[in-house]
Simulated scan of single mutants.
Amino acid sequence: MPQLSYKTFGEGEPLIILHGLFGSLDNWITLAKKFADNYKVYIVDQRNHGLSFHDDAWDYDLMAEDLCEFMSTEQLDKAHLIGHSMGGKTVMNFAVKYPEKVDKLIVADIGPKYYPVHHTTIIKALYSIDVNALSSRNEADEQMQKLISEFGVRQFLLKNLQRDGDSFRWKMNLDVIAKNIEEVGKALNQNATYAQPTLFIRGGKSDYIQDGDFNTIHSIFPKSKIETIAGAGHWLHAEKPAEFFQLVTEFLANE
């Protein structure tokens, strides 16, 4: 199987970070460098994202196996794991399947429940851009504005645009993501359990983890605690990096 694209920073106990849907390891470089003061940090592109391999098959079972293979290749018996959104679902699935390979688990703004598809506008906006005819990123941004008004969201998505000679192309595998978008919302097996320390961090302005989800979280992750970063939305690590860093650092430092 092809190796996942990754970067490392620092030395010490291994800490692996997985990005969310439409993201890449680049989203985590700033925080990875901060964590690298105390850990050997691996930021990884999941399949069909960033510079990792493209494949027609794409679901959480496969992404958990990709992570297992990655750890084996890097000769890591055990690691701390951080996953945001889709990456959070990946690390949850991985922890349930391979608890012996996980030191501490951190899940950023996603729960183990089912989420209905809510990325239709984003996918439509991405397809509205004719990458073969683009002359600049600004042109792509202008085209996307018709469907996505939030500047920050457009900038996040346009990080996937890569210059390829005289034209542009998407780094991510947009066709496979669009075709299998239902997979992203799939719930964890509700009978699953992971009995080791787990930290869920939610954004105070995000609706991904609601108070009504706490019972489900605690039933699958009995040693979990749930923290809220006030004023942060779904991209809480980008919006409130200092608060996110502090919560994770304290959790990892506690025996």
Rank of each mutant, 00 (worst) to 15 (best):
S85V: 07
D130M: 04
T120D: 13
V176Q: 07
F221A: 10
E69A: 10
G83W: 02
H234F: 03
K34V: 08
G87C: 14
E150T: 14
A242G: 00
K33A: 11
I17T: 04
P99D: 06
G231A: 12
S136N: 13
L147M: 12
S135L: 07
A238H: 02
L51A: 09
I129S: 03
V184N: 10
Y39A: 05
M144S: 04
A64C: 06
G212A: 05
N173S: 07
A32Y: 00
E11R: 14
G185I: 10
G83K: 02
K223C: 15
K159H: 11
S24H: 07
A108K: 00
L161N: 06
D37S: 13
F214P: 03
F70E: 09
D109L: 13
W58P: 07
H54N: 03
L134E: 00
A187H: 10
G50I: 11
P2S: 14
Q46D: 07
I82S: 01
V248N: 08
T216I: 14
V102S: 04
W58R: 05
N138T: 06
E255Y: 07
M86H: 12
H49M: 09
Y98M: 00
F22Y: 14
I82W: 01
L25D: 04
Q145V: 03
V176P: 04
W28S: 02
I123V: 11
L247M: 15
P116Y: 03
A232P: 08
S128C: 06
L21Y: 07
Q143V: 08
E250W: 04
P99C: 08
N180G: 06
E69M: 13
F70W: 15
E69N: 15
A79I: 10
E74C: 12
K7I: 00
G231W: 12
I220Q: 14
I29N: 11
R47K: 08
T73Y: 13
G50V: 10
D103K: 11
K205H: 11
E255F: 02
K33T: 12
M172K: 06
A108F: 02
N254V: 15
K40N: 04
L4T: 09
V131F: 00
V96L: 08
D55M: 04
L31Y: 05
R202E: 10
T8M: 05
G165P: 13
H19G: 06
I29Y: 04
I148K: 04
F53H: 15
G204H: 08
T73F: 15
S219F: 10
A187R: 05
L188D: 09
K7H: 09
E139N: 07
I122K: 00
